[in-house]
Amino acid sequence: MTVLVSERLTIAVEGDVPVVRRRARELAQAAHFDAFASAAITTAASELSRNALVHGGGGYAVVEHVSDGLREGLRLVFVDEGPGILDIDRALRGGYSTGRSLGLGLSGSRRLVDEFHVETSLGKGTRVEVVKWARFRR
């Protein structure tokens, strides 16, 4: 995978979530995403950066425009040093509900992307990596 653009964005305050979202949207356009794919990855960026802020106490995001030689895509990584996720299976099924979300952040984002990896460690934090590829143009 070739990385064409890579940026690290801090997630520390509420106002950072829209910044990550906007950057993801701009890169999706640069990578020739159609409207549906672009909305999907931008929404996932929003969900996951909010998760990092609300559940992880903040951290950072890496947003990248990538290519595997045949397709262009976006890779987003979200890292926090929060308490970690106690029951990851349940979180991925959409079982958690908290004050600021419906517990659909993680499970919902997973359904919006092509590749999804989560690593979590109690007391140390969580790292979520997602990739979505541009589809052939409609």
């Binding site: 409207a35 549906f36 672009s38 909305a39 999907a40 929404t43 969900e47 959409g94 419906l102 659909l104 499970s107 919902g108 984002s109 359904r111 919006l112």
Partner: peptide, 14 residues
Amino acid sequence: MRPEVAATLVQMGY
């Protein structure tokens, strides 16, 4: 609501 917004919400199960 825009088409892509509706599709995204439904895909997430919302």
